[in-house]
Amino acid sequence: MILHELIDYETLRVIWWLLLGVLLIAFAVTDGFDLGVGALLPFVARSDVERRVAINTIGPVWEGNQVWLILGGGAIFAAWPQLYAVSFSGFYLAMFAILAALILRPVGFKYRSKLEDPSWRSSWDWALFIGGFVPALIFGVAVGNVLQGVPFRLDDDLRIFYEGSFLALLNPFALLCGLLSVAMLVMHGAAWLVLKTSGPVAARAQRFGSIAAVLTLLLFALGGLALWLGVDGYRFVSVPETTGPSNPLMSEVVRDGSAWFANYGAHPWMMLAPLFGFLGAFGALLAMRAGREVLTLLLSKLSIFGVISTVGLSMFPFILPSSIQPNASLTVWDSSSSHLTLFIMLISTAIFLPLIALYTSWVYKVLWGKVDEEEIRNESSHSY
């Protein structure tokens, strides 16, 4: 037997679908609180010292957290090449906006303290706000468009033609998903600030985080209602070939208004995902008001896990539906790399992913504790 045949092609495809979800969730629960703190910066911190306190809660860790985004992009490129080609070309301007905003973060961290001029520092504080708010919004907008279907088509040679525009991405349902993403990550950022700071910054973070948790609950419910009433899903006309070649045009797909909810009827255990989304946000709200710092952060992570998992489970096995040529929709069964490629990548991931997780855990252990305002004033131990 050839080594890579130890795991059949169908199973490998599902494993890589799961791993993609793990990487996206890992990015959201780590770099997500960095984005949330950036979006909260002008509001939770009023003096220069308070803003430095907030910045120093994420300054030592944001770079490592962003690794999960790079890993997710790499996984899409290697495991789902057609998904990479369609999404990174069709969402090109949106991706550019995200990258431009993310670039403001390291520049803002490094340059903010170069001058003591208040207007100089205020400008960089707003740059850090943009670096947190814009990616959080656009990531959610992208998910909203994926749920609706993306306007691309494939010709007989599997060449990709994207027929959408940047402004078309900013439709009402996608913007609703974008606002949910912002509320969810602001809640997460507030939970981090409550854990890592004290005094006025923590008190304001608790107040804004409570509001964000309530908005997360409302927007998540409203998004589900809008998806049920106004957004068509996609389904196969017949059972797809799960071990066949990666050619989407070999399947027949149609739009169906109830398709995104069919998985929950077939597999009731999947209802745990939206339940975690609601319970996590509600629990984070209660824990935040009760001053349970660690529990607040854990429940915020649970909510993020539930919200993102809800999207993935609702769509399975679809990854990127086509709104103008449903048969071109990319699914787990027809848009992956080869059997051998997925197997080699799985072995590499089994070696390196635990190492990354262990190193990340060690970093957080070393940096455990609150950022001290007095040390900020004395310039004794903090970088920014």
Rank of each mutant, 00 (worst) to 15 (best):
L340V: 08
E375L: 11
W80C: 03
L24E: 10
S47I: 01
A190C: 10
A203P: 07
E163H: 11
A45F: 06
A54N: 09
R289F: 07
L330F: 05
F166Q: 07
L71I: 12
P268Y: 04
G209V: 02
A94S: 13
R112W: 09
K114N: 06
V307D: 09
D8S: 15
G244I: 12
L297M: 12
W16N: 13
L297Y: 12
P200S: 14
A281P: 01
N378C: 02
I351K: 06
V237R: 12
F96W: 15
F33Q: 09
I130L: 15
A28I: 04
R292Q: 15
L320N: 03
K110P: 00
A75H: 15
T57M: 03
L24Y: 08
L218M: 14
V194G: 11
G64V: 08
V182A: 07
Y234G: 11
A213L: 09
G132S: 08
I160Q: 03
A213E: 02
S348K: 05
D256L: 02
F27V: 08
K114T: 14
G74A: 11
A266Q: 14
F109E: 03
R159M: 03
L217Q: 02
L19V: 15
Y234K: 05
V107Q: 02
R377E: 14
L218D: 08
F129R: 06
L179G: 12
T349P: 01
G108T: 09
E116I: 01
R121E: 11
G223D: 09
S123V: 10
I7R: 04
P200K: 02
L275T: 15
R235A: 11
P172G: 08
V29G: 04
A136R: 01
L176H: 05
R235L: 11
L222C: 10
T310W: 10
T216F: 00
V44W: 02
P42Y: 07
S335N: 12
T341K: 10
W80H: 05
F133W: 13
V49L: 12
L137K: 05
V371F: 01
A202K: 14
W228N: 08
G199N: 06
F133G: 08
L104A: 13
P81C: 03
V363M: 14
V231E: 06
L69A: 14
N327W: 03
S258G: 13
S123I: 06
Q148S: 14
V239I: 07
G306M: 11
A183H: 07
F43W: 13
L299C: 06
Y92T: 04
L128A: 11
T331I: 06
I347A: 15
F91P: 01
I160E: 12
S47N: 00
K365A: 12
L217K: 00
G369M: 11
V332M: 13
I347F: 10
G149L: 08
F318Y: 06
A97G: 14
G108Y: 09
H267T: 13
N247G: 07
L104W: 10
G230R: 02
A213I: 07
H4I: 03
A183R: 02
G59V: 03
V134K: 08
L12N: 00
S338I: 02
V146L: 10
D372K: 13
F109H: 04
A101W: 05
F282R: 07
L346R: 02
H267P: 00
S119V: 15
L340H: 05
A101C: 11
L169G: 13
W16P: 09
F236C: 07
D372S: 15
L229F: 14
F77R: 04
